[in-house]
Structures are given as structure tokens and as C-alpha cells.
Design a binder for these strands. Structure first.
Lengths: 213, 213, 213, 213
DNA sequence: AATGAATGAGCATTCATTCAT
DNA sequence: CATGAATGAATGCTCATTCAT
């Protein structure tokens, strides 16, 4: 039934089809990684075929996570590419763009929350190393752009980004834990996630960029 | 062999023994919840006995997490109890105390990283509600203490604490992800966790407490 | 709380209380033997106490079954005690009485259907022997009464009774299997149990008592 | 090691192999359903493979029971297919054939005795309905054959068969209960099962077929 | 005698991955 | 390349029974 993918580009397309199917199932799902069989079916393939393109199920989601991270970094870099007249405006633009992005692509934060179980379980060391190298080098590159835009010292941009990610990840997990309180009597003590994140990031960057005496 | 715990205090002690055994196994382990049988053995009990004290395995870890959270809040509250002459000193004291605490008790952050799977799986709604109510009310109480110490508006203390926790959780997860890079050639792009956390918290609180014009 | 039962009659009463509680729970239940803890609670006792009066849970139900069987045999014997003018009337009286009895005391047939698992599992040989001896001797006695009432040869009454019991047990199991068809579209192919049983018994006894040439 | 069963007929054969292994283990066993792992091993397969062919363990035994029931009905129908000159001979032929069949295939009665626990536990409603529909329709068909052979009114054949099954089931349970008396001193009050069944059936059919005035 | 805490055997099922076809 | 049949590890929980109190 399924056409054999011989050409390299066909194979790449099939690989991406699996990734897309996996991502869609994960976002639609309940927080656990979808079963390999489900992914295969959703991609219109047989179970075994998935394993021709990925060594383990976790590798699929590692790839997805990396794609999502790189996309976010692209977006961030773009938000700093426009030269604005003040640091405050520059940061405000970044915050708005970034918060909009993570809110728009739930896959990123949902996968990130699972990254511990994805990355530590069932993934060979080489692949893991690749993942981290790619991510970190791209992160450092974006950090450099930040440094240039805000005239910061080397390494400072990367650090700011990592701490922003940490804040994002932490707040998202609080927020999603909050959501699972079914009882409506319990008033949430937090504003909606994107507002909360925007405020917290703004506070953080303000404190981080202050000229200290 | 095992003495029967008839008195309420003996039962309480046995319950705590199970919690301690579970916590120790978890911290020593690979990130997954230890098997019920292992916990029982480590506590010197039979498997069935554990289920006299906890309804499900997850309930054990929910209790552990709550204990750890409350202990952290105690410590935080204590750090704000001493009246110091400036906000900056007050915050610096808090940061040092807090970072010391979370570094000293790895159980807290390791469990917190799993809280999603612990709290959502195999825990009845009532217990979950209890957990959240207890935690949140204690959090708000500590938030009030912060507000008094720093003369902040109502609710601000709670918000600062939650965002601090978010930063902690997020940084810890980055840090632990970093750790699992076995390859020593990869220089970590982050300072040690406690230093990183201290810096990030300091920056965040500085930005959050700034008088805005 | 519970008064110690020292006198033999008190002990007997307590034993019967356990039996009654067990029987009530079983009839109210879903077909499985109630848990030992439930029986104890229903009898107002602690779990361990039940085991002072019965060696195993199955022993409780063996005793209950025996009581129910003996009561049925009493009833049957009584139905043959009245001298009537024809065999046909005598048998008709028996059938009516007997069917009424088993319909009135569901415990008998429900327990009987489980007797396989009760008697074969977890019951020591001696107790089992006792059970059978008591039942069989009482059965033979009743068989003798039947023989006298109907002027049958020795052993014939016992045989008739056993085959009647077999028919009863078999029809009851068909009937109860039928009941668990939830789908109301499926018309039951059997009349109500007591009518079915009465007809079948009447046919059987008619065939068994015919004068053969 | 194990050849993959791709063709539909191979799959059918493997399914039957599992059924056969399960049946053999059950007949050889102590009355409880053999563990899934045992069945798999006996069939020369891995545990998981069994679940490719049956959804639950109970489904295996439901299928076995249905096969056995249908085989018995086939045999019964065949015994009525030969036209004999008298009702008495016709019935006698049936009784002999039928008793021979159930004595030859102990699986049928042993499974039937457990059918309550098999059919009510762990079997989805649809499967249960299928089972009953198949059995009942086949039963009614056989009933019709009986009616034609003996010139009975519609529905009468089915009723006679059901009551015969009830008698069979009831007597078999008495008989098997009897068997588990280990003590050889206790003389059984019953003849061997097949003789007892033959006599009881003969009596029953004689009474049922009598011309009543 | 009464209690209730402690025990531990027992087991179906899922699903990531492999491998025969 | 694609398939889908085969594999087998991994585990929480119940509950009859025992025994310390």
C-alpha cells in the first residue's frame, strides 16, 4: 500500500510525517507519550516502519523537542533583530513575542515538561550529546544576538535566555498543576499562564539589566 | 518479628518510617518511583503492610512532597522573621537560606519534577484537593510574612514566592538535564546549581522590588 | 466492647451470629463470597475473632450450606408426612412445597452453585467428610420417608431426591445465567425459574414412578 | 523461533492451538482457570502472543465452552437424524449417544460448571451476547430437529433439551463433589456418573413424553 | 477471648522493540 | 523498504490467615 521511500528526500519526508503525527497525538493526548502503534497508525504506516526511521520512541520526541526549541530560538532572535531605541522597549518586544510564541505552540512546553523522562530513559548517549550540542550552540548564538542588541558582556545573553527558559518551564508546570484542580471552589492563586509569564519575565529582565552601583 | 503498632504514636512512627524509606530510595534511584515491594523491604515490612498506611503508592510520595514543601516554607518564613535594616539585606538573607535549603534536601526538587505524574495518576480527588489546599494556605501564610517584612501590598508576597519556586524548579531541571551529559568534554554552560539559583533569584527579586516610576 | 463468650451457649450463639451475617452478605452480594473482614464487621466482631470460630472462610459457608440443605430436607420430609390418597397428589404436594421452599430461600441455591469452589478449596478433609456424612445420612433418612409414603423399594427414594436436586441445581444455574443477559432484546427462552422447576420435576417424577411392563 | 502466522489459515490454526492448550491444562488442572502464562507456554508461545488472539483470558474459555456446546448439539442432532420406529428407541438412542459424548469430553461439563465465573467476569457484553445468541439459536435448531423426530409441538424440543442439560449439569456436579471424598470408606451413594445420567434422562424423557389423559 | 496489625502469595495485561516474511 | 506477528519484562494491590498484644 505504502510507497517505498527510496530517495533521500522521500525518506526525510516520511520521517517528518512520523514526527508530525507524534506531535499531534501528544498535544491532543493526556500528557503521556502516545504509544508507538498509535503514532504509526496516525502516520499511515505499520508499527515496524517507525523503527526504520527512529531507533526508539523517545528519539522521536527528542527530535520534536529539538525542532520546537530551535523554532523558539529563531523567534527570539528575530525579536531582537529589530533595533529599537531603548533597552526597555527591546525587552518588552522580546517578552511579548516570546510569550506569544510559547502560548501558540503548546508542544514545546508540554514536551519540555516531560524532557526528563524522555531524555534520560531509553536514549543512547550519542544521540543525547547531539541533542544538547545542537541546542546549546544555537542557544549561544541567540545569546550573542541578545548581547549585541542590548550591549551586554559575552555570555550574559545566554545566561539571560536560560534563566528565562527556567522561569517559563517552572511557571508552566505550576500552571498546569493548577489546572488539574477539578474543584471550581478552589480559586486559582495564579493569573492565566501567559499574563503570569509576561509579568515574571519583565520583572526578571528588569532586575537583571539594572545598572548596579 | 515486627512489633505490632497499636498505639497511635507507634502507628505514626511506622508511617513515617515508610515515608523515610520511600524518600531514601527515590533520592538514591534513577528518577522513577521505587516499586512498592522495594519500599516495604527498605522499611523492614511486608508489602501488604505498606497498604495499611497508604492507599496507593502515589499517596506515599504525595505525602513526602507535601512534607518537603512545608519544611521549605517554614525555612523561608524563618528567614524573613529576623528584622533586618534594608530590603536588600532581607532578600539576600532569604536567598542564601532558601538556596541552602533546597541544595541540602534534594528530595524536594526531585519529587517536584515528578509531581505531575505523581499527582495526576492514581490519587483520588479528595487527597489531591487536600494536598493543594494545605500547600496553598501555607504558601499564602508565608506570603503574608514576606509582605510584612518587606512592606508589600497584599498578595505580592505569595506571587514573589511562586515565581521564585518556578525559577527554582526550572533551573533545577536544566541543571539536572545538564548533569546527565556523561561526556566530560562538554563544558557545562551553567554554573553549579546553587550558585546559578542564587544569582537568578537575586536578579529576579531586584527587578520585582524596584520602585517603578 | 464485645462481651467475651465463655459459656458454651454464648459461643454457639456467636457462631450462629457469624453464620447469619455471612449468609446475609452473600445473598445481598454479587455471587462471590464476601470478604472475611466484611463478615466480621457485619457480625460486630473483629477480623481475628471470626477465626476463633471457624478455621477458614470456606468453613463458614460449608456450615451455612449444610444448614440450608438440612432445612430443605426437613421441609421435604414434612411434605411427605401427610398421607394422601394417590401418588400423584403426594408428588404434587411435594413439588409445590419444595419449589416454594427453594424459591423462598435463595441462599440454598446460590451457595450450592458455588459449592464446588467452597468445598474443594481450602477445606480440610475431615470437615469435608463430616459435611458429606451428615448430609448423606439425613438425605437417606428422608429418602426412606419417601419410600414409605410412595411404597417404593429401598434406595429408590434417595435416588429420586438426588436426581430432583440435580434438576434443581441445573435449572437454577441455567436460569441465573439467563438473568445476566442485560440486553432486553434477547427474549429468555425459559419460563420463570419456579414454574420451570415445577414442570420439570413433575415430568421427572411421572416418568420415574411409571409402572413399567 | 516461532513461525509468524501471516496467512489467515495459519492464524486460525494458532488460535486453535491456544484453545487446545488451554483446554488440556484446564482438564488436567484442579478446577481453576490456568494462568495465562501457563497457557502460553503450553502452546509454545510467549505470554504476549496469547493476547494477540484473545482479548482476555476468559475469552479463551468462553470460546472453548462454546465449541464444546456446539459439538454436543451436533452430536445430539445426529442422534435424532436416524429415523427409528418408536419414540422409545429414538430416545434411547439419543440417551446413549449423548451420555457417551459428555463422558468422552470432560471439558464440556467441567467448563460448564465454571461458566458462571467465566461468563460474568472479565468478558465484555458484546462477546457475552454473541456467545448466548450463537448457543441459543443452535439449541433451538436442534430442538426443532427433536420435535420433527418425535412429532412434538413447537418449542417442546428445546425445552426437553434444556431440562436434559440441567439434569446433566446437576448430576455431574453431584458426582464430581462425590469424587473429591478422598476417604474410600465412604461408599458413594451414586452409581457411576454415566450410568446415573443415563437412568435419570431415561426417566425424565419417559415422563415428559407420556400421553396425559 | 478479642483484637487488629502484619504477612506475602498470586497474576493479568501492556507495549516498546525485534525479526520472520 | 515495509509489514505486523512475536516477544517478555515489569508490577500494584487484595485478602485470607496468623500472631503479637
Amino acid at each position: 500500500m505504502v510507497r517505498h521511500a527510496h530517495a533521500a528526500e522521500d525518506k526525510q519526508a516520511r520521517r517528518q510525517a512520523i514526527l508530525d503525527a507524534a506531535g499531534a497525538l501528544f498535544v491532543a493526548g493526556d500528557g503521556s507519550l502516545p504509544a508507538a502503534a498509535e503514532i504509526a497508525t496516525a502516520a499511515g504506516l505499520a508499527k515496524g516502519t517507525v523503527y526504520l526511521y527512529f531507533r526508539t520512541k523517545e528519539e522521536i520526541f527528542t527530535d520534536l523537542l529539538l525542532q520546537a526549541c530551535l523554532a523558539a530560538l529563531d523567534r527570539i532572535e528575530a525579536s531582537f533583530a529589530v533595533q529599537l531605541d531603548s533597552r526597555r522597549t527591546q525587552v518588552a518586544t522580546f517578552v511579548t513575542t516570546y510569550v506569544g510564541h510559547v502560548a501558540q505552540y503548546p508542544l514545546l512546553l508540554r514536551l519540555d515538561a516531560m524532557s526528563h523522562s524522555i531524555l534520560e530513559k531509553n536514549l543512547d548517549a550519542a544521540k543525547l550529546r547531539d541533542f544538547k550540542l545542537t541546542f546549546v550552540s544555537r542557544l549561544v548564538a541567540t545569546g550573542t544576538v541578545v548581547e549585541q542588541a542590548l550591549r551586554l558582556s559575552p555570555g550574559r545573553g545566554t545566561s539571560l535566555l536560560m534563566r528565562s527558559f527556567a522561569l517559563t518551564r517552572g511557571l508552566w508546570q505550576s500552571s498546569s498543576a493548577d489546572d488539574c484542580v477539578v474543584d471550581p471552589a478552589l480559586v486559582s492563586i495564579q493569573p492565566p499562564f501567559d499574563q503570569e509569564l509576561a509579568e515574571a519575565l519583565t520583572e526578571y529582565w528588569r532586575g537583571a539589566l539594572i545598572e548596579q552601583d
